[in-house]
């Protein structure tokens, strides 16, 4: 299962804080984060890596970015 964090419309640092909270307290091995700015995309990807996760995919469409984060076991 994958958890979804919808951080669209939020300004920094909120998308990062929501992502970190999900990494720390969520139980799903995969997290999908939705953001709508390049800034948030870079920050969220960096936050994931600094918390021991991997960013497996970043997809861009006209609504923004979809970041797929895999938690390490």
């Amino acid at each position: 299962m994958a958890a979804t964090v919808d951080a669209r419309g939020l300004s920094c640092p909120q998308p990062v804080i929501l992502t970190i909270n999900e990494i720390k307290s969520g139980t799903d091995p995969e997290i999908i984060v939705l953001v709508d700015t390049e800034t948030s995309q870079e920050n969220v990807s960096r936050a994931a890596v600094s918390h021991g996760c991997t960013v497996s995919e970043v997809m861009q469409d006209n609504e923004g970015y979809r970041i797929i984060i895999k938690k390490e076991k």
């Binding site: 300004s11 920094c12 640092p13 990062v16 992502t19 970190i20 700015t37 390049e38 800034t39 870079e42 920050n43 969220v44 990807s45 960096r46 936050a47 994931a48 600094s50 918390h51």
Partner: peptide, 12 residues
């Protein structure tokens, strides 16, 4: 903090 993704939009 920057390596944790806490970089303000202004920096970008």
């Amino acid at each position: 903090f920057a390596s944790m993704g806490l970089v303000p939009a202004g920096a970008f």
